[in-house]
C-alpha cells in the first residue's frame, strides 16, 4: 500500500475508534438513564425515588392478579426473581398482558412501596410459536417456564 494511503487509512481508523470511545463513555456514564425501567428489586430496596413518575418493569407474577368485579381496577405483583412489588391500576390493559408475561408500568411509587400505575404496557418476548406447537409444548409441560431467565436486576 502506498504510504499516503496508509496514512489516510490510519486517519479513518482513528476517526472510527475515537468516536466509538467517546460515544461508549457517554453511554456508560448515562447507563442508568438509558434503562427504560427499574426492576422490582431496586424498588423494594428503596433505590427509586418516591412520589415521582417512574417506570417499573418485571414479570407479572402468576396467580397474583386480582380484578375488581365492578370496575376496571386491578392489582398484581411484578417480580424479577429477587423481589416483588405490588401494582395498582385502573384502566385498560393491552391484549398481551398476562400472568407470567413481562410488563412495563408507568406510575408513582408510594411511601409504602407500592406502584400506583397510570399506564401498563405489555413487554412481549422474542418467541414466535404456532398455536398447535404451543399446545403440544404445554402438554409436555415445557412451555410453563414463565418468569424464567429474567435479568432485569443485573
Amino acid at each position: 500500500m502506498h504510504p499516503v494511503r496508509k496514512q489516510r487509512l490510519m486517519i479513518v481508523i482513528f476517526i472510527v475508534v475515537f468516536s466509538s470511545i467517546a460515544v461508549g463513555l457517554m453511554a456508560y456514564a448515562l447507563r442508568e438513564n438509558i434503562n427504560l425501567f427499574y426492576p422490582p428489586s431496586k424498588i423494594a430496596a428503596g433505590d427509586v425515588p418516591h412520589n415521582t413518575r417512574i417506570r417499573a418493569g418485571g414479570c407479572v407474577k402468576p396467580g397474583s392478579v386480582e380484578r375488581a368485579s365492578d370496575s376496571l381496577e386491578i392489582r398484581f405483583l411484578i417480580t424479577d426473581g429477587t423481589a416483588d412489588v405490588k401494582v395498582n391500576f385502573n384502566g385498560i390493559l393491552p391484549d398481551l398482558f398476562a400472568e407470567g408475561e413481562a410488563a412495563v408500568i408507568n406510575g408513582i411509587v408510594t411511601e409504602t412501596g407500592e406502584i400506583n400505575a397510570s399506564e401498563v404496557l405489555a413487554k412481549h418476548d422474542e418467541n414466535y410459536t404456532p398455536p398447535e406447537v404451543a399446545e403440544a409444548m404445554k402438554d409436555k409441560g415445557e412451555h410453563q417456564k414463565t418468569c424464567e431467565g429474567l435479568k432485569y436486576g443485573a
Binding site: I34, N35, L36, L93, P94, D95, L96, F97, V104, E119, V120, L121, A122, K123, H124
Partner: peptide, 11 residues
Amino acid sequence: PTWGTWWEWDA
C-alpha cells in the same frame, strides 16, 4: 396492538 403504545423512548 402488542405493547399497547405507538411509541416509547426506549434504547
